[in-house]
Design a protein around this nucleic acid. Sequence first.
RNA 1: GGGCUCUUAGCUCAGCUGGAUAGAGCACCUCCCUUCUAAGGAGGCGGUCUCAGGUUCGAAUCCUGAAGGGCUCACCA
Length: 594
Amino acid sequence: MNLQETLSNQVKQAVLSTFNIQLESVEFQATRKEFAGDITVVIFPMLRFVKGNPVQIGETIGNYLVENVDEVKAYNVVKGFLNVEIKDTYYFDFFNSIKDEETYGFVSPKADEKAIMVEYSSPNTNKPLHLGHVRNNLLGYSVAEILKASGKKVYKTQIINDRGIHICKSMLAWKRFGNNETPESTGLKGDKLVGNYYVKFDQEYKKEIEALIASGKTEDEAKKNAPLLLEAQSMLQKWESGDEDVVSLWKMMNGWVYEGFNETYKNLGVDFDTLYYESDTYLLGKEFVAEGLKSGVFEKEADGSVWCDLTEDGLDRKIVQRSDGTAVYITQDIGTAIQRIKDFPDVGGMVYTVGNEQDYHFQVLFLILKKLGFEWAKNLYHLSYGMVDLPSGKMKSREGTVVDADDLIDEMASTAAEISEELGKLDGYTKEEKEALYKTIGLGALKYYILKVDPKKRILFDPKESIDFQGNTGPFIQYTYARIQAILRKADFDYSVNLSSVDKSLHEKEKELLKQLELFPEVIQNAAMQHSPALVANYTYDLVKEFNSFYQNVSILGADNENEKIFRVQLSKKVAQTIKNAFHVLGIQVPERM
RNA sequence: GGGCUCUUAGCUCAGCUGGAUAGAGCACCUCCCUUCUAAGGAGGCGGUCUCAGGUUCGAAUCCUGAAGGGCUCACCA
């Protein structure tokens, strides 16, 4: 039983014995810094049941707690708030119980619990990854790690959108204007090369449209009948019918893209346990469309198209198969979901990391899967996140207004390098060690910048204003970690003993740190429940701020006596470890020096 | 037009299931490196929590409405 539960029971007992009233629950909050006390009981909600003056009620309960609860040292009442002071003994006991637990805050997966599959990234293979994908990747990866840390078994996956008209556009432009360029011949990353031809297609397509309009066609006609578009469409048909040339071109160019993506993923530090390709799954859903027709979940129109009527659920009618029998986007989503459960029978739910422009889509998808009768459909979650916008508005790859993922990662590292060199604290580091450190810091800044924001809020990113390295940032937290490591390197004495309140009293700053450490397991559980890395980021910031204040206000290695010194080193070490654990689930590394 | 969503300091964001005088960072202004790393610390300036009603002992938080922004409502993905 933790402290709050103990107090809750005792407060109920106090109210029962003095007022003869059974409270259902007791409300707590952290005591504000300006008042004495460690935890506060809010009296107001009790007034509904206990008639009387809140201050008097507070006094009564406070008295009871001091007399009956070992951990309670004293109390004071301010208005309707009962501030309770807790004895140092409690905090020493708590600290000793977690001191040597390396994975403090994390829960190991239970054998009998169902796994969760987390989908993220899921790019199209016609262009390189940009800042929007970066947010997606960081979020998905982090939520997967948070779920793991909270005690779930997790599979990371993605659905790679490797087919469709957009891919054919890149293919066609390459075939037409590419002069057999390859990543090798140009030195370009494969995804960049293919992306260039996607842009090239658009440019040439626009020229054709203009020419057609000049020759008297309407804009609409021109757009639909431009020869390039028609050829791209026929290429798609050839692909679907298995045309050898088209398929081998498709394989070659997608291969280039995958190589490029893998490099970006590696740089970003994200990974996947299993992959799904749209080209494998796009036909899958049709099987279940047929089944849904049989069971009456879907209905067929006269023209052969298949629909799902969701009007009774407050949504619209949704097409699930075209009149020509081909699959639409949602058809393959249905198939993919079912396939995943077949492949991984221990999976009991899925998380889809996809932008909020698809909120409606997922509402429909989940509802359809429920209607099809899948038990696991109730455990599907759309991790919906806001777009990353530029000051100029939306990023558009065809118009070249995107912030490229690789470029951004490089820029972050070089900014880190500039700052580091200016500060000049890295004597003795080899060039390789420095490079690795710059990457750690640069990526730390980028990842923290994105993850500290509530996923569902949109982010405005101004490329002209670089991401901060000071204040509430990744490097600030990394810096604190590095500082603690410096202390631990210098602490060449045995600090393994367990201390207690007879050995020393707690400094105010020490106690604040202990209280903050105490919150960590709860933060992980909360973040998992809410699918929000931002909660972990903000917690870590608070912890670090508290530590820095401690660090500048008391001497650690120069403490007055041996016990102070031992305890402060232990405490510092625990804070560092907690920073490391918290950053681990955010996918951010911590440096030994910086 | 229907649905969803957002609006907190000059800027970027916290604010847990309603609770004490709404908190941080950046920017601006003061201080603090002979002491464990100043990417730091201590303090100051800065708010009609978009607006109007309502519920409540108590509302940034819940409800209704309005304004402004975003997304969405394809036989696109």
